[in-house]
Design a protein around this nucleic acid. Sequence first.
DNA 1: TTATAAAAAATTGGATACAAAATGGCTTCC
DNA 2: GGAAGCCATTTTGTATCCAATTTTTTATAA
Lengths: 228, 228
Amino acid sequence: MASRSPQKKKRPPIRESVYEHLKAEILSGHLDPGRKLTEEHLAKTLGVSRTPIREALYKLDSEGLIKPRNKRGFIVSGDSRDEVEELFELRSILEGYALRVISQTISEEILGQLKGFIQNAEEALKKNKIEEVFKWNTQFHDSLHELIIKKARLYRLIVNIRKYVLRYRKDTLRYPDGGRRSVEDHKKILMALRLRDPDLCERIMREHIQEAREDALLSLFEKPSGFK
Amino acid sequence: MASRSPQKKKRPPIRESVYEHLKAEILSGHLDPGRKLTEEHLAKTLGVSRTPIREALYKLDSEGLIKPRNKRGFIVSGDSRDEVEELFELRSILEGYALRVISQTISEEILGQLKGFIQNAEEALKKNKIEEVFKWNTQFHDSLHELIIKKARLYRLIVNIRKYVLRYRKDTLRYPDGGRRSVEDHKKILMALRLRDPDLCERIMREHIQEAREDALLSLFEKPSGFK
DNA sequence: TTATAAAAAATTGGATACAAAATGGCTTCC
DNA sequence: GGAAGCCATTTTGTATCCAATTTTTTATAA
């Protein structure tokens, strides 16, 4: 144990920093859809060589965040209405099934935690603190996801998609009634979990996410004025 | 018209050939799980530079077919029992939902085609031509998948996972009754589609794939003798 | 002015070169 | 004999270089 260095002196590879950076830029909306990404430009901007840039771009491509244009670099994927719809649809399938599984194993303790998150969100709602509502709602979902971490692929899929659509959800809550309905849904989910009824759980979660989908589509594609 | 070349003289990139090659090797079982893959060795073996090798390896990693070992290259992912179970579980979720969607839009013409595939499989079954049964069963599923090609992400997910587990399915049919049961299931699926009952469709497809899962697990982890 | 074609510029794909990190074996000391 | 430390080897990570391809620009002619 003398030779084992106590602290890990591993620098993360540059390609990963680049990947995280670009991903954050895209998901935050800082890089608009349609934006052209060329290897050399990125390399110069970020001060690294093209090699790690390329590897990051390929990874982003495989996740669908950017699209290759034959030999003309990449562009940031636009979110067409259809694509957004499909993302929410996928979420509803996967998280619906996840809740079915969870309903069969969840403990009283976790149920209590979930109840707490809902109450917190409800209080924040009364005070009209939208950010807080969002925070507690996120906590609610994250806690559920943790319960299926053993199903690694399902978990990864859900978390990835969720990250991807997160940017749409914040707006959603701002819509009149959006926050309240969201909290109501979570109550229903909790109830279904308490009943430990797998079919009901799956159906309710699907409905919940489909509802979020409608709100997201509304806020995305039917903005009153200056969009994009 | 002089400048426009009549035939596309696009060579596919080497990284894709490498990717396809390695993927095939892994899925066919030619590369055993646990096998070590180093960039340089692969480069020398395949006669290309490390660059396309790396890009292929990263892609395989993102699909879970190989795993990075800190700084010690990659190894071919083993399929633990849990992982195989989860793959089939995911398939059952996704394809179940896909069938639900399909049931609402499928045409009489396609229904006729599906019926044909089933009959072909049935005849092959009578003649004990396992390869043929497998072929027609695959055709049956592929035809269904084509119907959701518009939902690009769902389609890609399904096709990818299906490719991944394909290697287990061939064995499955060899099991006594495996082929017959499979064809019976397809008949049930067709019936549910004819009824255009979304709930029934989803449930039946899930059951069908869960059944295939059981067979695969049996053939994988309870082989009578010399395995691996 | 417009269309066409050739040349120039930009950009990716692949190969190679070099540096850093990790492992494995070897030596040495107790 | 065993353990600790050091050196050589292996292998990845990044940069740079060259070739191929595509786009854009420019020049020329109708």
